[in-house]
Design a protein around this nucleic acid. Structure first.
Lengths: 225, 225
DNA sequence: TCTGAAAATTCAGATTATCTTCAGGTAATC
DNA sequence: GATTACCTGAAGATAATCTGAATTTTCAGA
């Protein structure tokens, strides 16, 4: 998994980011200021650096400039307090990959990290492949093959399948599924999910037997037997 | 692109090799025997000579000896009929780069040509060349050939194609594509990408089938099937 | 600096794939 | 047998993409 260096002089912020990043499976290291970040980057390589701007010893911009000299490939996300518009431009001039304004949500930051790592190295995020007997789901290609034959799924069908498979053996309520696959703001008809399950089952052919209806609850993707 | 001289007394074989080589974008010249090959090499330079052994007027080995005197740098691939073991050794003694036994497949020969050119001219080896069936993308020359014919792509079209091809088999979101091909600071119309995809598809002709639309996601360059 | 052609972008309408809804049917549960 | 929850097929609504054409931008050459 990708190696990330978090640079901020506030331990609380570092901790918050670290928790989120570790939850997502990243290999996380912390630095308390720009100087420490530069030292760490000299010693070993990171895929991405999260860098605050205002810091003692060495500010974020100078640190990034130095780090880029050593590791031109490294991805950089700058953090800064609200309203420092000049910094934004300055940051992008330096070739910074993204820019996040404090206060930010952990989720948002993670999404940006994923987006950047994907952009920089799409193959690296190519590892997710689920194999259920003769059914192969390749998340990087966004394809589903059954016995070697490609199955065309609509976006909703695909996402629904991946969500179910990722939670193989776990009962998922209708609400959970709708919230995850459709989003928090879905207030549509209660039969929408039924219909998509139906379409998905149709497309999966005999593999539809893995999608089990839990009456009064929702659905579950069966473990291989 | 590399200049190749095909030397064989059988027109059919010359033609077969020429077709393959032109598909790959090589600059191809033909010679019907060793004598003609030597003459051509005196007149102008080639990067690689494909040389049959058994030929009228001047056999392959004598021709290579002569050509090497004029052009010591030239790379040589010898062709010979099955089972002439002695020739093999003899060929390598002469400093021949590779040795292909008839009958051979065009694809195999092309692979060997690429390998040798890479070895002989390492700076050219830094150049990426992608071959998708009869479509050849040469990143160092910034050219695209389809069935041997040069296709003129605009800069954006070319970069778009290369980004897609470099990530063959991987689903790329519109955002990823825009960020990589257009740059992080592109906030333009959402239909810009569509239009360029359209133009690219038009220029790629039947090869446009490799660029598949992923509704709600983006695009993907298909793996060869 | 000006000019013209090529390229990039924008725009709006057409075209689809996809999503949602609905109504009637079916199966499970009590 | 009544009730509830789910399944199904059809059809209209929606939203994403494609397309052609107009407009703007870029850049090489005069």
């Amino acid at each position: 998994m990708a190696k990330i260096l978090i640079t901020d002089d506030e331990p609380k912020i570092r901790e918050m980011i670290r928790k989120y990043a570790q939850y997502e499976g990243f290999d996380v290291t912390e630095a308390a200021d720009g100087m420490e970040a530069v030292e760490l980057c000299t010693e070993r390589n990171f895929d991405l650096v999260i860098m605050d701007i205002m810091m003692p010893n060495l500010d974020g911009f100078s640190a990034v400039k130095e780090i880029r000299r050593i590791r031109p490939q490294i991805a950089v996300i700058m953090l800064s307090a609200l309203g420092e518009e000049y910094d934004k431009v300055h940051g992008f001039d330096l070739g910074v990959d993204d820019y996040v304004v404090k206060p930010f949500s952990g989720k948002e930051l993670m999404m940006r990290i994923h987006a950047i790592l994907k952009r920089v190295n799409p193959q690296a995020s190519a590892s997710e492949v689920y194999t259920i007997n003769g059914m192969v789901i390749d998340c990087s290609a966004r394809t589903v093959h059954i016995d070697g034959v490609r199955v065309n799924l609509s976006p909703k069908e695909y996402e629904l399948l991946v969500y179910l498979v990722r939670n193989t053996g776990i009962a998922l309520t209708r609400e959970q599924i709708l919230q995850t696959v459709w989003g928090y703001d879905f207030f549509g008809d209660d039969r929408t999910l039924d219909t998509h399950i139906k379409l998905l089952r149709k497309n999966l052919g005999e593999y539809s037997r893995y999608i089990v209806t839990l009456r009064g609850v929702g659905y579950r993707f069966e473990k291989e037997s």
